[in-house]
């Protein structure tokens, strides 16, 4: 279970969010550009610090302003897929996926087996030697997801994982992504602009407006928000 209760002063408004995500559930975070969605993911990942509050995963505090706990990002065990995918351009597909295991000083033989399994499952084994900069958008998305999942994260954060793909690929990747996330059985937060993503992939959804949770509910309710938002 992921528990978030944080406050942070941003340039134009105050971010104040309180929400929980249960194990194996996917929370879809929607909202306009600049409403604080990515900032919230960064706070959870430890890439940015809240001004006050608490973030806990499975009962263990990752950040707690009262007890002055702040676990560094490398020790949080969180799988984060960035909007730009952030694949290391000087490394091959194989090295990108193996990166998280090498930082854990795992034995080379073990790394080889795990990376091979992961790349084969994602259909990326054939392009394992290609430089990350030279592969297609869909392949980059798969590599980024494989890289985040191979470390067996306790929490998954995905920042607009489908936005860099064209519409046709989005539909195919949406199903693939949903299957992979459900197989992990960890709490997951996905930031998106697309209400179809929310309806297809989410268990619960939140609408963030200027740093505050404006609406919260089941994913099936989102299409009603959409019509409400359009009416506004």
């Amino acid at each position: 279970m992921l528990e978030i209760n944080v406050k942070k002063r941003l340039r134009d408004f105050d971010l104040g969010v309180k929400l929980d995500v249960a194990r194996g559930k996917t929370l879809m975070l929607v909202g306009d550009n600049g409403c604080g969605k990515t900032t919230l993911l960064n706070l959870v990942a430890g890439l940015d610090n809240p001004d006050e509050g608490r973030i806990a995963l499975d009962g263990r505090a990752l950040y707690d302003s009262e007890s002055k706990t702040n676990v560094p990002p490398e020790a949080r065990g969180i799988g984060y897929v960035f909007q730009s995918y952030a694949l290391f351009p000087h490394m091959s597909v194989y090295d990108n996926v193996a990166f998280g295991l090498r930082t854990r000083r795992m034995a080379a033989g073990e790394i080889k087996i795990l990376v091979k399994d992961r790349l084969e499952a994602a259909g990326l084994w054939e392009i394992r030697k290609a430089k990350a900069a030279d592969i297609s958008g869909g392949q980059k998305q798969r590599v980024a997801l494989a890289r985040a999942l191979i470390i067996e994260p306790r929490l998954l954060l995905l920042d607009e994982p489908l936005s860099a793909l064209d519409v046709r690929k989005q539909a195919a990747m949406r199903d693939e992504l949903m299957e992979t996330i459900h197989a992990c059985a960890v709490p997951c937060i996905i930031v998106t602009h697309d209400l179809r993503d929310v309806a297809c992939m989410g268990d619960q959804a939140c609408l963030l407006e200027r740093g505050k949770l404006a609406l919260q509910g089941g994913a099936e309710e989102v299409l009603r928000w959409g019509s409400g938002m359009n009416a506004k």
Binding site: L47, E74, Y80, A86, F99, T103
Partner: peptide, 27 residues
């Protein structure tokens, strides 16, 4: 060097020093 590379390395378990020598410096 895009800050996202550095952030990605950190979330994958790399310390600041490891990130500097294995990600930032080569790029």
């Amino acid at each position: 060097v895009d800050l996202a590379f550095e952030n990605a390395a950190r979330t994958l378990g790399a310390s600041r020093v490891y990130t500097f020598f294995h990600v930032i410096l080569p790029i």
